[in-house]
């Protein structure tokens, strides 16, 4: 463990010290605070979260069995779905009425469970499209290269630094479609960083990644915290949650059933019940 990582982990631990391990526990400095978030599809209530806060500068894992509503909750928070009711603040601004692209501009950037690399574009173009506030993205300005060339060069510099860091620099001229599944995950994360987000939302970052790449992906996620970002990620793999999460929120059947440190969560009977279905008779399955 590097010194930087130790410092990051210690800071996150200190920020969460004294937070009770119960659903909806208030945090000292919450970057995201949601209340009464409900999303129903017809009669099915996919998400019904009373209250949740995410501490700034920490890595928070959102876990739960399949169908618990994790991804739906993610989609709601990032503006990719509309809630039936509920409201939330992100970084001091009301965010529940924002559209997905406005959420991203406000500093909350997401990745997808099924990686969305822009396959028929080069890796470098995938990165450049991520940069915010580009003058050349206005149609008329696009016609006058003089207006955007400087900004483009600066974005390119930044993209190359990130590609170097994510070990994709040799692939920069390749089509994104030529990358392996794991490399696409890395590209997606690197691309999200082009927006310089305050909070990054990773939907199953480890899904479909081979074990060799897993470790490096974990390190990259820790680096995000060390660089001052807040990370919220959905994950199934408890080992991974243990290794990198500072805080864990558990969802089951659309509700937030508990929160706590990874150690508290692994000892929590409610979590075990939710995963293993202890309330149900085995014969019913």
């Amino acid at each position: 463990m590097s010194d930087k990582e130790k410092a990051g982990k210690a800071a996150a631990g200190a920020a969460l010290a004294g937070v009770p391990a119960e659903p909806g526990a208030p945090k000292a400095d919450a970057i995201l605070s949601a209340t009464g978030v409900r999303r129903a599809f017809g009669g099915l209530v996919a998400v019904d979260v009373e209250h949740v806060e995410i501490q700034r500068g920490t890595i928070t894992a959102l876990i739960g069995p399949n169908g618990a509503g994790k991804t739906t909750f993610f989609n709601l928070l990032t503006g990719f779905d509309r809630p039936s009711r509920g409201s939330w603040d992100f970084d001091g601004r009301r965010a529940d009425r924002m559209r997905s692209f406005q959420v991203a501009r406000a500093g909350m950037v997401r990745t997808f469970q099924l990686t969305k690399a822009l396959t028929r574009m080069s890796v470098l173009d995938n990165m450049l499209i991520g940069a915010a506030d580009q003058v050349g993205e206005r149609m008329w300005a696009g016609l006058v290269p003089r207006l955007w060339r400087g900004q483009e060069a600066a974005n390119r510099e930044r993209a190359l630094v990130l590609l170097e860091r994510f070990k994709l620099i040799d692939k920069r001229e390749h089509y994104a479609g030529e990358l392996s599944g794991g490399q696409r995950k890395l590209l997606e994360m690197a691309r999200a960083l082009m927006l310089e987000p305050k909070m990054i939302m990773l939907d199953e970052p480890m899904a479909g990644v081979n074990p060799a790449l897993k470790q490096s992906l974990l390190e990259h996620i820790k680096d995000l915290r060390e660089d001052g970002m807040t990370v919220l990620f959905v994950e199934h793999d408890m080992d991974m949650v243990h290794e990198i999460a500072d805080w864990v929120a558990v969802m089951a059947a659309g509700q937030l059933i508990t929160e706590g440190t990874p150690d508290q969560i692994s000892a929590d009977q409610r979590v075990i019940d939710a995963y293993l279905g202890a309330h149900h008779d085995a014969a019913q399955h």
């Binding site: 692209f101 950037v109 003058v135 050349g136 696009g142 016609l143 999200a192």
Partner: peptide, 27 residues
């Protein structure tokens, strides 16, 4: 000029996957 500008790049991104482009803050 247009398709080689950042504007054109966003269009190509939309062709590939508009949700991805939306998640990157583009309208």
């Amino acid at each position: 000029l247009l398709v080689h500008s950042p504007w054109g790049r966003v269009l190509k991104g939309i062709r590939e996957d508009e949700e991805a482009v939306r998640s990157l803050g583009k309208n």
